[in-house]
Design a protein around this nucleic acid. Sequence first.
DNA 1: TTGAAAGCGCTAACAT
DNA 2: ATGTTAGCGCTTTCAA
Lengths: 357, 357
Amino acid sequence: MQTDPASTEEPRTVADIARRTEHRYGNRPTMKDVAARAGVGLKTVSRVVNSEPGVTPDTERRVQEAIEILGFRRNDSARVLRKGRTATVGLVLEDLADPFYGPLSRAVEEVARAHGALLINGSSAEDPDREQELALALCARRVDGLIVIPAGDDHRYLEPEIRAGVATVFVDRPAGRLDVDAVLSDSFGGARDGVAHLIAHGHRRIGFIGDRPRIHTASERLRGYRSAMEDAGLPVDESWVSPGSTEPERVAAAVRGMLAAAEPVTALFAGNNRVMVTVVRALAGHPRPVALVGFDDMELADLLGITVIAQDAAALGRTAAERLFRRLDGVEDAPERVVLGTTLLARGSGEIPPATG
Amino acid sequence: MQTDPASTEEPRTVADIARRTEHRYGNRPTMKDVAARAGVGLKTVSRVVNSEPGVTPDTERRVQEAIEILGFRRNDSARVLRKGRTATVGLVLEDLADPFYGPLSRAVEEVARAHGALLINGSSAEDPDREQELALALCARRVDGLIVIPAGDDHRYLEPEIRAGVATVFVDRPAGRLDVDAVLSDSFGGARDGVAHLIAHGHRRIGFIGDRPRIHTASERLRGYRSAMEDAGLPVDESWVSPGSTEPERVAAAVRGMLAAAEPVTALFAGNNRVMVTVVRALAGHPRPVALVGFDDMELADLLGITVIAQDAAALGRTAAERLFRRLDGVEDAPERVVLGTTLLARGSGEIPPATG
DNA sequence: TTGAAAGCGCTAACAT
DNA sequence: ATGTTAGCGCTTTCAA
């Protein structure tokens, strides 16, 4: 019953093989087809495909030939179903187009690759619902692990997944109401250092323009700003503090407002790369020099002489991914929070003295 | 006092449900488990999970409850095996950390999302072997479609996949020895326009620093450079032409060489964003002003006054993804090449006149 | 309205 | 060294 009528003739040449290539559109050959074609059992094909031992060179050759002729490629979906592991990890981030997340994602990918895994990225667009939808879709595909840059602040929806064995690590921002690993940058310390730097250069009236305070890093940076001001015994006029969306219009308006005041700020701290770009543009048209320190380094920022608090996005991704795979390898330490330091890069804009008058 | 498996008692409250939640670590509940728990048939659970009609509200409620209690989530791997489609597309690119590819990938993701699909990204690191390995790994996972930014120049290895039904679109660079859709930027025209712009501003000795000529876009841009020079009747001294890796050391050395010559170039054309960054850095320390036009726009380039030939990475990704999904929807036009135009953005660096002397 | 049975293509566990 | 059988968890088909 299992003898394929065509399997009696053997192809002789490469051209012969090419001519005989048989594909049914949208209907791929399976191991069973290969087995029939090669005149061997299904398991033998499986052995050849997976380089398992116990196949004579001659049999192997025949199987390889059949694979070639039929254009067979193992269906990993079926394999996954049987094996239980997908060799896939998911990464939920805010926006892959943001120059901060590209390198982070790439670093995760490299670690995954070293472990033989592929990476599925998803952008939440800073929307908690979309974050959840994405994370759960990834779980439905049975990713082995999940790395999340959260948009929301309640991640209890992941509890069943984690209990079911999905390794989970948060990065850049901690999870809300869920006790899992988190790899973060020192937003508080970085911002405090940056503002202290401005203070050290003589500034007293310093503005803070940041992202929406709902975002953990944003509120931490604002806290760092206040801490530095307090440490220096400086009052904070609330008109100097402008958290909110990173929309250019909003940020530009905030800058204008702070500079147009009776007692204008003489320095600004930009809470992240999106804000920084707009602030730099706004300051470019301003008559008086205004000092600036930004959170996040950017390409070309060095050439513009922008002093920044640099964080290492790639290290963030790498560290998170390594923790993830350590867990997948069976390590079961208690969830931990890892905080990576930041670096102040003085390039000029942060060392401008307060404008007199 | 644990819950009995006989499911004779119904949970009454949310807390009750939470207490009863039963998870076996690494051993997820299946539809069969849900069916047993709810006291219904397997198919009924399937109907509820997939919102198919033909289930009484009361039955549906019981099934939903069992799903909640057990923490069930449909295994899409199994679903895929049965349905044949994965609702996943793959994107092979060079490097997700490159600011050109982030937005491109994001654009693909958005189109995929609109079609209910997820995206698996993979970076080839400009290595043809790795490109192939990645593309075939994606095919083994039975992605419905594949978008490729090629590193290699022979893509016949994809023939069996395409024949088997994997929709395939190349983007940024065309496929080699394979007749498939390609969505490209007009590298030739863009470079020609940029060089013509420099010529129009009085330059005669113009240097070209580009990527390795093996890369299609790189050779096209070099061709554009030569075309513009020829159109203007200008000779090209081969010492002005420096294709090669985008390593900062190599690029910086090329810049130094061209500026140190007896008859130095008075203007430079940078073949892509990687090259441009290094050229700008190198020129920053140079005594004489040197004009510069770069291919690819970059964030902050406007503030540095860098004249560029801008291409729209997001449009490239969007267009490619739309074609892909059109094919997945059954459209079977002949493979086509779509070329998107570029834009010259004059910002100062390209309008510097030739240095006298 | 509901459910039982038959696979999807593969691998694990046993035969031979 | 090689083959057979029984699932993995789901959807499809068809019967009740």
